[in-house]
């Protein structure tokens, strides 16, 4: 039951949307799939006077060039899943979309951009987007600008959008990297405790240049370059326990919530990293 005198806007163009958001500042927010914003209003955790609905903005594009794939703000996980297989690294997004918590209904309703904008540490999309080096396309009163995902996620539940700006799309590269995704959660209904997105660019199959981005283990995704763990041939040179120790050291301030304490997340970070790598290897 929403307690405030909320007004719903469905602007027909981006300028109008940005103007509304700019005019109302903290008292306004964008509603996309609704899966996060609406219950937070219902629970009285957020109080707003205005919501700006994306539905009439035509942001449902899901289109590609030979370098990247652009995913509009209204594209749901189900849209991502029902599209033809994404090429190259972008496939990571499809893999992750298939495992979103909340069942098919949430996959029908939730959007990639919505999840990114919410920036919940315990979720899939931030880590995946950072792993891919996604470009985040914002639109605001001063027009559009683009930020790399690594700069977009500023803190837990905080993104680098300015007053009046909304995320209109993300684009992800379709480079022919091998990818591997591993998500660890406690039970079907649990949000991720730790995720790892491995991106392996070496066409010869070594780990040279490989990165693994950890999600859900800290306030913002953590992109790790595996170089310190590799030998001259680009192979993992250290035993698992050492990998885990190294990874744990990269997580100085682990995320902590009622589902799992920080030290647990730190402990399993290395495990999910290794498992994502393994999946990427299997993706040869």
């Amino acid at each position: 039951m929403i307690r405030t005198a909320l007004r719903h806007h469905a602007p027909g163009d981006l300028e109008e949307a940005a103007a509304l958001l700019a005019a109302h500042g903290e008292r306004a927010a964008v509603v996309g799939g609704g899966t996060v914003l609406v219950p937070s209003l219902t629970r009285g955790e957020r109080d707003l006077d205005h919501v700006v609905d994306l539905r009439r903005l035509g942001l449902d594009e899901l289109s590609g060039t030979d370098q990247e794939l652009r995913i509009g703000a209204s594209v749901s996980y189900a849209d991502v899943l029902s599209a033809p297989p994404f090429p190259g690294a972008a496939q990571l997004l499809q893999v992750a979309a298939g495992g979103i918590t909340g069942g098919p209904q949430i996959r029908n309703q939730g959007t990639v951009c919505g999840s990114a904008s919410y920036a919940n540490p315990s979720s899939d999309m931030p880590g995946v987007l950072v792993a891919l080096g996604a470009q985040m396309h914002l639109h605001g009163p001063e027009g559009g600008r683009t930020l790399p995902a690594g700069e977009f996620f500023v803190d837990a539940f905080r993104v680098a959008a300015r007053r009046g700006e909304l995320l209109v799309a993300v684009s992800v590269p379709t480079r022919p990297d091998r990818i591997g995704y591993y998500k660890f959660k406690l039970a079907e209904g649990s949000w991720p405790i730790a995720t790892a997105s491995a991106v392996l660019p070496d066409p010869d199959g070594s780990l040279t240049g490989a990165t693994v981005t950890l999600g859900a283990v800290s306030a913002v995704p953590l992109r790790l370059d595996l170089a310190p763990l590799l030998d001259g041939n680009g192979d993992l040179a250290v035993p698992a326990a050492e990998v885990d120790g190294w990874v744990a050291a990269q997580v100085p301030e682990p995320w902590d919530d009622e589902l799992a304490p920080g030290d647990y997340r730190r402990t399993v970070a290395g495990v999910v990293l290794r498992r994502a790598l393994q999946r990427a290897e299997e993706n040869r």
Partner: peptide
């Protein structure tokens, strides 16, 4: 045509 949770939808969005 899609199964959705109707507690997550603001009524005006269903127009």
């Amino acid at each position: 045509g899609k199964a959705i949770k109707s507690c997550l939808v603001l009524a005006p969005a269903a127009e």
